[in-house]
Design a protein around this nucleic acid. Structure first.
Ligand SMILES: [Zn+2]
Ligand SMILES: [Zn+2]
Ligand SMILES: [Zn+2]
Ligand SMILES: [Zn+2]
Lengths: 132, 132
DNA sequence: AACGATATTGACAATCGTTTTCATTTAGGA
DNA sequence: TCCTAAATGAAAACGATTGTCAATATCGTT
């Protein structure tokens, strides 16, 4: 019933470092490629496992791409927030919307829904990409 | 360059009917199974193609599940709206949030983002499921 | 009604992200 | 050091979706 004791490994440390250092959202395979690039030979399965765990623990944010691929990112803000993401270059800005949070609560209460959560992402084209 | 002329077929009509009649969100495979159940022998590829086209034309709404599977639904409101979805039974309520719409515009403008869109879904447990 | 160009279908294979398997390795407490 | 369970990774399995392509069906034209 209780979760197994978690041991610290070279691999997880390496994965953590990469996620920490990469800007914006990246796929598990991206991160695995980056690790390989850096000479860290870590199995792809391990990368998937580590990222899932980190996301589960709330240590990293996840973003579901239109095609279903999951992207991971280490955000500055550990509290609940959302993202404004450039569709073209992936530039990501963390945004906060107290009003939206309240609104979702309202809607849920209004329909007598329980145990509420929500997903919200804003997509667009950043100034750099518009200029380029 | 121009799109090919679209011809109407038995298969697409059958798919359309099923989507029209099924409540809530369902996967392409769900819909294919329902068609088979009804005795309509339609290829799975055709179901995928038809649903993609319908979604593309804005005739049906789509919802990305956590695991990346795409769900389709025929909504009553053809205009832009969002959903309050029961995590357990899939019961879906269409909701409107003018405030949220304005807020996303604000955020985008504030960061000089262009060509803005957004995704927003609310998940929870409906009263029926709480009772059950 | 028959024709012909081409849009559509569907069985099947291929793709691709992700998960599982399981034998081997490793972390960390005794 | 020793032991046990956690962790790894190579490879296979998985599952949703897409591509292939020969056969079929639609629809404007004759
Ligand atoms: Zn950009
Ligand atoms: Zn929120
Ligand atoms: Zn429910
Ligand atoms: Zn909206």
């Amino acid at each position: 019933m209780s979760d197994p004791i978690r041991r610290s490994t070279k691999q997880r440390a390496a994965i953590y470092d990469v996620v920490q250092q990469l800007p914006n959202f990246h796929s598990a395979q991206d991160i695995h490629a980056e690790l390989t690039q850096r000479g860290s030979r870590v199995g792809l399965s391990t990368v998937y496992r580590a990222l899932s765990a980190m996301a589960n623990d709330g240590d990293v944010d996840t973003l579901l791409r239109d095609d279903g691929e999951t992207l991971y990112r280490q955000c500055a803000d550990s509290a609940h927030h959302h993202h404004l993401v450039c569709r073209q270059c992936g530039a990501t800005i963390e945004v906060d919307g107290p009003t939206v949070e309240i609104w979702t609560q309202h809607i849920a209460a209004q329909h007598d829904f329980d145990d509420v959560s929500h997903t919200l992402e804003i997509f667009g084209r950043c100034p750099q990409c518009r200029a380029g």
